[in-house]
Amino acid sequence: MSTASEVPFAVRARQWLVLTPVMLWIAALVLIPNILMLVYSLWSTEEGVLRREFSLTNYVDVLTNDVTLTILLRTLLTAIGAALLATAIAYAMAWFVVKKLTRWRMLAVLLVIVPLWISYLVRVYSWKILLGESGVINSTFLAVGIIDEPLSFMLYSRFSVFVTLTYVSIPFAFVAAYSALERIPKSLLEASADSGATPGRAFRTVVWPLSRQGVGIGFALAFLLCVGDYLTPAMVGGLQGTMFGSLIVNQFGLANNWPLGAAMSIVLLAATGALLAAVARASRSEGILE
């Protein structure tokens, strides 16, 4: 490490000069937008006109209103649930790929990622076709005779939001889980088997500690995707499936109350941040594989 006295002033000045563009970028596109959002959240609107006085009214509104609180809680729970299920499915798939497949491995991995290249909105929309009252699933069940009348809980409900969010999250969770599992050297598993560990024990003591960070990352990606999505609830959620994101977007659009929308965003950001920090703590890995 060189200390200040060893490095000539001109060199140090030059080093900082090189970083100016980075700092300008951060100022213009990270700091200012976030500070402005914070400031906006403390302002208010009266009949569409911005009142530039600081107050905490918006936050009080968000946190004391039963409807917004219920929806916030429901959103967080739905996002956690969908992300957990997606992570579990993706982890199982990734483990299967790593353990059982050699020749077809690349293809299997590629096939999980391919849906990411299909328009997100269309993937969401396809669930409308599948789950609707005269949708593919209902029609098939009716035709086969499993049910006598269409299941109506499937679309425009929390169920459809949950299924769709799980569906769109799987590829992200898979990439994270797979890249963690794939890096675990076979020799470690052989060593644990040689030392007499049962497969279950080997999983608990070798595989899981070395891959749970990847699982944590996958979960975080999936959770962020779910919690920030207002398209899915709008498309397949109906009234029942309203999520916090829809409320925020309404403030931006119909209700035209940007300050309240900003306050809601910050509440969501705080909740999300706290949750992800907890996940990062819990999934910290003991071993480092490079």
Binding site: N34, L224, A262
Partner: peptide, 24 residues
């Protein structure tokens, strides 16, 4: 520190980013 600052927008929920940019 600078890397983390640049990465922030990529890890906040999309609509929070969208709203803050729209305001800015």
């Amino acid at each position: 520190v600078l890397t983390a600052a640049v990465v922030i927008p990529a890890i906040v929920p999309g609509m929070v980013l969208g709203l803050s940019l729209a305001i800015a």
